[in-house]
Amino acid sequence: MDSTNNDTSAPKELKVINVGVELFAEELRKQGVKVIHVDFKPPRKLDEDIEEILSKII
């Protein structure tokens, strides 16, 4: 709830970074909360990348 180690009280004004489901960012905005949304995409696995490269070559 806080951005410093010393102050453990609840923040007066919430400022949120939303990572993942965008609906949650929209719902916070509806409540007047400042939100930055991170459009999460899973990192690709190396073997998938290699497979894709191979499929183009072979």
């Binding site: 923040p11 400022k15 949120v16 970074i17 990572v19 993942g20 916070l28 930055i36 949304h37 991170v38």
Partner: peptide, 23 residues
């Protein structure tokens, strides 16, 4: 506006005081 990484998001909102993670 949306960002593609957590790092970029913190640059845009350096005084963020909560993160909601649903990955």
């Amino acid at each position: 506006v949306s960002f593609s990484s957590v790092e970029e998001a913190f640059e845009a909102l350096p005084d963020a005081n909560l993160a909601l993670v649903s990955v």
